[in-house]
Amino acid sequence: MRVRNWLRLHTSLVYLFLYGPILMLIVLSFNRSGLPTAWGGFSLHWYQELWQNKALLNAALNSVLVAGGSTLVSAVFGTLLAMGLERIARNMVLDAFVFLPMIIPDIVLAIALLSFFTFLEMPLSLLTITISHIVFNIAFVAAIVRTRLSYFDNTLEEASLDLGAPPLKTFFKITLPLIFPGIVAGSLLAFTISLDEFVIAFFTAGPARPTLPILIYSMVRFGVTPDVNALATIVLSISALLILISQRLGGTEGFF
């Protein structure tokens, strides 16, 4: 059929659009010459360069701290939230509220949090970024755990109770093991988002300890430098890896 071939061509071009620039970055990151057009041979030079960049390593560490902290809290809160939402009748207003951070423009959330922390006279730091990231990460974890719960057979819990396991024991022996992959998937997703999040971090970060995206932003504003290619390749690879694992665990399905 002609239509099918046309669709195939269209789709191929769309994927080329999505992946062309990324692949180009990756290739350039191994280019000894550092120039976008002259191939100076394969080299890990720019990666070694990164390794010696103290500021960058610090920023990376900051990012991991923020992502780790916010993921830990939102994994617990998000899971409980999903279980709570599953237990009550579907409520449009509550849903809208909980998933609001996913839809409002991040700049709005960013200035609101900045104003709030300033109002409370809380010094901006890694802590303020972490607190802010939890706000939207709860929604992501909850969304994924909730999908998992919707496949969950409620009679399993009832069977456990019937067989004599009290509620708390039932939760740890039956419910938790069954939804655990969902929690892990949601947490990996939250970790990745937090790691890459720029706008809210930009507004709620203190001047002394930037996260990696903030540092990248300031590097990029001053133009193209070859070591950014290497950094970009590393960051994209880590994110992609985490997302693929999350996906394997059934993470990103049923998001829409």
Binding site: L25, T192, D196, F198, I216, S239, A240
Partner: peptide
């Protein structure tokens, strides 16, 4: 899900 900032940089 991957860094938009970096993809913009590309």
């Amino acid at each position: 899900w991957t860094s938009y900032l970096i993809r913009t940089y590309a």
